[in-house]
Write a protein that binds this DNA or RNA. Structure first.
Lengths: 190, 190
DNA sequence: GAGTTTATTGACCCGTCAATCAATAACGGA
DNA sequence: TCCGTTATTGATTGACGGGTCAATAAACTC
């Protein structure tokens, strides 16, 4: 079996399996064995390529963050200067970023970031970038871009939590409305 | 040593110790032994009174929720009809509810609620009550009380997360500003 | 004071899981 | 074809933590 050049394939499979398993199980109590099994390999191999459980998690987190970054950049490309903020927000709730799996993974990462300094670092970088992008996009629209941006990022986090815990039947109402508010926030203060 | 009537004292001590330990350690990876040690007893005794780890957690969660409920009710007592919404929000961020420990505990409970149905039930009850209180308080102030209330509860959750993860040096700015926004949301639509 | 109930603990069992290791097997070059 | 590298796993280890239990002792009852 052993073909050469497996490393990137295995790493990719493990990262995907991690996110999927977290989503399927709904907690960060996923074992390396579960992840490895879902990725079609033994747990020993997972350790071989990543070194340890935390590093598998961090790789998955980086993946989620970079996926989101790509999504946001793509959205910004086709947005005129007045709709840049809306484009960023739309990226946060796009079908690719706003998945059950991704949301659950975010939750676990919030928790991980409370103890793991590397996870915390990543989260802060992401937050800073999101914030500064929003501020930039809001300069022309708002008198207080910083303040509005701060509120927006907080509201986005809150909507993610709601999505994770509200039952799937009625997830839309609050989110949709809040997005409405977000949109109005961009113009609100002229 | 064994005096009679220890049960309520022990339970109380364990609930307090649970919240404190979660706060101190910053995750839900607290062992029953740690909690028990902090509460000044053996882990066997903790099991004796609560039956299991999850039930200790749930008891702590109920405590946090009921403390908040008391705080909110107290605030509502001395509020005229126009400041009821503001009073509720103030309760969410009052020094007694908005503690490092409490915030961390909230985070762990969010996660617990993804797997434990009882925890989820409690969270939903709390959310429903908070929401309906806000709607009631907003009827006179807003044209769309439901929508505004939904946004508020989401924003509150988001601010809790930020507080848990932002470094303690600069926690205020975003929170303070968002509270400002919350206040304005109450009047915004007249 | 005998017997029951409550309080309390140290020691122990058992399951789980991250991490390691030795062993096997294919591939690539020399 | 031999050797080093890469791939891969089953078995094992070692730690940890939840939960149980038997044993001790004080307090309460009659």
């Amino acid at each position: 079996m052993p073909k050469v050049g497996m490393e990137p394939i295995r790493r990719e499979a493990l990262v995907k399996a991690t996110i999927a398993e977290i989503g399927a199980q709904g907690s960060l109590d996923v074992t390396v064995s579960q992840i490895a099994r879902r990725a079609g390999m033994s747990s020993a191999l997972a350790h071989h390529y990543f070194g340890g459980k935390e590093q598998i998690f961090l790789a998955a987190m980086r993946r989620i963050l970079s996926d989101f970054g790509a999504e946001a950049r793509a959205g910004l490309l086709m947005a005129d200067s007045d709709s840049r903020a809306a484009a960023i927000i739309r990226a946060c709730f796009s079908p690719t970023s706003f998945t059950r799996e991704t949301i659950t993974a975010w939750m676990t990462f919030y928790v991980l970031a409370q103890t793991n300094t590397e996870a915390l670092r990543l989260w802060r970088i992401y937050q800073r970038r999101l914030r500064s992008n929003l501020i930039h996009a809001l300069r022309a629209l708002s008198r207080d871009p910083e303040g509005v941006a701060d509120t927006m990022v907080a509201l986005i986090d809150g909507l993610y939590i709601r999505a994770a815990l509200s039952d799937p039947e009625t997830p839309e109402r609050a989110t949709v409305h809040a997005l409405d508010v977000l949109a109005k926030l961009t113009v609100n203060k002229k």
